[in-house]
Amino acid sequence: MIQTHAGPIIQLRDIERRYRLGKTAVLALRGVTVDFWSGEFTAIAGPSGSGKTTLLNIIGCIDKPNGGRLALRGKDVTDQPTHRLASLRNQYFGFIFQTFNLIPVLTAYENIEYPLVINGTPKAERRRRVEELLVRVGLAEHRRHRPNELSGGQRQRVAIARALVNRPVAVLADEPTANLDSRTGGEILDLMSELNESQQVTFLFSTHDASIISRARRVLLMADGILQEDERASFTHAAPVIVPVAVGA
């Protein structure tokens, strides 16, 4: 069970991420400091190579920073071991990928259920949550369909349901509409927005699509690995504090 936390749910301090491309060192993130709060609907915008995806990966514990600190609900998780990070990802985040990334051999129902299966949620509870989400994303009739039997929009709806099933602290979506036509992309964005408004689901998504950026209530503009702008619609909070506590200890 994730404890409630009064401050920001995600805190990044001076995050740096370097890559090596052959003999060249690439600085993908240069000292990014930013906080995210529960219920946000935030777009991380910027051109290709600006560091959007890297930032989402660091936040989602998919990637590790070379410098700086990351805290989730006030707990420093920067130096957690690999297996602990796997648990953190499962408990704290839902992921939506540009290419949907559903498991081909699992049905829509099973794909949504998977995060609950690996964290040992009892079967009855799993069924209750998955059924609820299938209805919520409008795929109740497609529960037994495998990904190759679904359209792009339906697949992304399954991915959204899968991202929500473990009731995460935040849903991280990397270019969620990039592989969809504009109408389907709009529908997916409507669904995400509606979930944010009605259920206070926190969404952080990367995009370089101006029409999507306009729907966000907070926009972080990235360029060359630097957080250039942070435009908020209505969020005002106290200064966050990172508390170095081992998660799961």
């Binding site: 989602g60 499962n90 559903l102 498991i103 995060p115």
Partner: peptide
């Protein structure tokens, strides 16, 4: 990519 997805969703390496 599927392995990456499984691990992103919280599947451990030994799993």
């Amino acid at each position: 990519r599927e392995i990456g997805t499984l691990m992103a969703l919280g599947t451990r390496r030994r799993q």
